[in-house]
Design a binder for these strands. Structure first.
Lengths: 192, 192
DNA sequence: GACACCTTACTGACCAGTAAGTAGAGTCGC
DNA sequence: GCGACTCTACTTACTGGTCAGTAAGGTGTC
């Protein structure tokens, strides 16, 4: 049966991506090796190279998957109110925090100077997506009259995005920090 | 003459620290090697090991220097008004940005999981210092009536600190991002 | 027999770290 | 004022480990 074969084909590939994702978000892209993945998966090193010849291929695939996942995420919650969308974003951050991880844009931008060119470009596109979305939420929040803040929606979106990225990093030292930042952002936006 | 000898002793050591600092803030701690430093300095690899036997010794020395420098920085501007202190902090960020660097707490927290234990402890102390200072500025800013924001000073300090850390990372993709975040923070605090 | 999905076996580069030796400058007894 | 000693600040030469990446071979399935 074709589906079963296809399922097996994508199975290892998906497991590699999942493991690589977890490793990248906790250790960073440069700080995990094909050994980390192959050992956990019970295969040999070269098996990873079969699916992703270069490490940058794996990296690009990871970020592409983030982009697809993120677009599905935004489409799925397109009908929610802006303040509900903000809470969904906060929950996303909580999930990263619960696994001792930071957000993908955080680790990728920190390591940016050492990333291969193709990964850098892909990262840029991903960050632009996230940034635009944050600005969108606060813009529609203000238009709907549920959020109140001075300045531009782009500026406020940047602050929310940057603060959440920084908060996840800060939370590695103090578990209270993420809650602290989330609460303060809610108050700054005047919602809840 | 003693002073001249002492000057030469500390000269190489200081040059190593300076180069290591620049490398860490642009590439990350794990992504630079003793080769990077020794090549630039025109000495052999082992010369670096003479001054800093383990790489973690170099890392700890770097963060300790940050702590000392930071305390001198806060003492030097103790007499400034809170909004002037905030602008000094912004200028610090501008200086990092101008050299294609991110802030030390940003890179160290991103790489935290892969850092040796002694560096982790030192980083924790450094971050606590910076965080406390940010909270101090906005607390005294509110007390003095020049800053206005909802919630606690700790919460607002965390947002400012996290947002600036995130903004420096965001600025690697878009040079406007840092200005955007700085401006928005000023407006959120109601100063200028 | 063609293909997907691995394996074994290897290469060369880079890495942190070490051991042993050395050049020069300062210190001491005499 | 001269040899012996000592210390700092390196050097050369090396080790063992890890890394990404490759080449060639095997195995099961359509």
């Amino acid at each position: 049966m074709k589906p079963e074969t296809d399922a097996r084909i994508t199975d290892t590939r998906k497991k590699i991506l999942d493991l690589a994702e977890a490793l990248m978000l906790s250790r960073g892209f440069n700080a995990f090796s094909y050994q980390h993945i192959s050992a956990e998966l019970g295969v040999r090193n070269a098996a990873i190279h079969y699916h992703f010849p270069k490490k940058s291929d794996l990296g690009v695939a990871l970020i592409e998957r983030y982009c697809r996942r993120f677009e599905r995420f935004t489409q799925a919650q397109a009908d929610l109110s802006p303040d509900e969308q903000l809470e969904q974003y906060f929950e996303l951050a909580d999930r990263y925090f619960g696994q001792q991880q930071i957000c993908p844009s955080g680790i990728l931008s920190a390591e940016l100077q050492t990333l291969p060119d193709d990964m850098r470009l892909q990262t840029q596109a991903f960050v632009a997506l996230m940034r635009g979305w944050a600005a969108d939420i606060v813009r529609r929040g203000r238009d709907a009259g549920v959020m109140h803040y001075p300045g531009s929606a782009e500026g406020m979106g940047d602050v929310v995005f940057a603060a959440m990225q920084g908060a996840l990093q800060l939370a590695r030292f103090d578990r209270q920090a993420l809650q602290s930042v989330k609460l303060q952002i809610r108050q700054l936006l005047g919602c809840q």
